[in-house]
Simulated scan of single mutants.
Amino acid sequence: MKKRLLLLVSLGWIFNYAHRMAVPPLIPMIRAELGINNAEAGLLMTALLLPYAVVQVPAGYIGDRIGRKRLLVMSIIGYSLSSALILFARQYWELLAVRALYGVFSGLYYAPATALISEVYRERKGSALGFFMIGPPVGSGIAPIIAAPIALALEWRYAFVLLSGMSLLIGLALAFAVRGEVSRPSRVRLSLPGNVYLLSAANFIVLAAFFGLLTFLVSFLVSYGVSIRRASMLFSLLSLVGVAGSLFGGALYDRIGRRSVSLVFGLNAFLTLVLALSASPWVILPLGLTFYSVGAIVTAYASEKATSENLGSVMGFVNMVGFFGATVGPYIMGLLIDSLGYRAAFLSVPAMYALALGIMGLEEKIGEGGFSRT
């Protein structure tokens, strides 16, 4: 039962990401049709990430109250149906509204899912969360593989309709294949420990960097003469290598604990600097390994800061703050590209990872981590 649960919850997370990351490879087509600039294209990510961030803490608390599996099923069905509404969006503001609605339902997923997995797997939570966190790389990787061919053959909106049908099946499978509530605490508290704030600040910065880079990676490569088809394949390659990165991150956390946070922040700062300066496709392979390891590591470390009574609230808070960063990241990156060009704009990414690394060093120095397995 545990393996079936982990598989289905992870599939729901994969399609949660596939819907949101179907936009980046389609940005050139969307810009051409709607006549928008890069900053406005960045807002297509911001529109979903802002409501996504806002509902994180309520999602964690509600999942603890009504049952985490129940809320996950509601989230999958909701984000599937709302994403399909893109078929009817013809104006820019309509597209923003649909993406925002999708953001609300997709935001109900992460906190109850990670709390559920942390409770069910306990001592092996790093490895289990590492498997769960293959969602971002796999979802981001399959998004252009599904979206680009459909967009070229039909119209870009139909890519979201197909994704919606696929994810809806996952929601129904989770509802009927896993019976009853698996993880529901006897007591629930909406409270936050003081040692969670520096980690949350670092998460804000790295998710701003993460989504800023991913949103414009295809456009960045195209600006250096790479065809849109090859650039989309490199985007998928980054994400597919990230599957190994997520598993690596979970295993690394189980082995060395909080030190893995600083390690991957430093590696990402170096590799994104190489990418910004060279635009070399060869950096995609090592970057995929470290880029996607962050999610599993930060998630596992955040769970160590909570008790069973406030686990959902803590997981939701760390992710909420992180996704406020994700909300502003694509828009700021778009503004930097419009004003400074791609290379200068992409240099902001290693600077952000370096800043997050400094924050984690400060956390260790002042002893707010409260973590004994270092």
Rank of each mutant, 00 (worst) to 15 (best):
F270M: 15
R255P: 11
I228F: 04
V241C: 03
G225C: 14
L252M: 14
L238S: 04
T299R: 03
A296W: 00
G295Q: 05
S293V: 00
N268R: 00
L238H: 03
F291M: 14
G266V: 08
L271G: 00
L252C: 01
L285C: 13
L275Y: 00
S223P: 10
R230T: 06
E304T: 15
I284S: 02
L267G: 14
S278M: 12
R230Y: 05
Y301V: 12
A300G: 07
V226M: 12
I297P: 01
L289K: 08
A231F: 00
G249E: 00
A306N: 03
W282A: 15
V283H: 09
S293M: 06
Y292D: 03
A302Q: 06
W282H: 11
P281T: 07
V243K: 07
L234W: 04
S278C: 12
S293Q: 10
R229D: 13
Y301G: 02
L263Y: 12
I297R: 02
F248S: 14
F220W: 04
S236T: 06
A276L: 01
S262Y: 08
G288I: 00
R259A: 14
L238N: 03
D254K: 09
V283G: 08
L263D: 08
G250N: 09
V283E: 02
F291K: 02
I256C: 12
P286H: 03
Y253T: 08
A279M: 08
A244Q: 09
A302P: 01
R229Y: 11
L267D: 03
L240E: 03
M233V: 10
V261R: 02
G225M: 14
G266E: 06
L247Y: 12
S236G: 08
V274H: 07
R230G: 04
S239D: 08
L285K: 11
W282C: 04
G288N: 05
L267C: 13
L285A: 15
V222E: 01
S280I: 11
A300S: 15
L234F: 07
F235E: 01
I256R: 11
V243H: 01
S246Y: 04
T290I: 08
F265G: 01
Y292H: 14
A306I: 10
S260L: 09
I297K: 06
V226E: 06
G288W: 04
L277N: 14
R255S: 14
S236F: 00
V226C: 06
T299M: 00
A231T: 10
V222T: 08
L234M: 13
S278F: 13
V274W: 07
M233E: 01
R230A: 09
P286I: 09
G257I: 11
F248M: 14
A244C: 12
R229E: 14
L273G: 07
T299G: 02
G250T: 05
L273I: 04
L252S: 03
L285P: 00
S246C: 11
A279Y: 09
S223L: 09
A276T: 02
A279E: 10
A231W: 01
Y301I: 11
A251G: 13
V294D: 00
R255A: 14
Y301H: 15
D254M: 11
Y224Q: 13
G242A: 13
S260A: 15
L267I: 15
V298L: 13
I297N: 05
I228W: 05
S303V: 03
A296N: 06
L285Y: 11
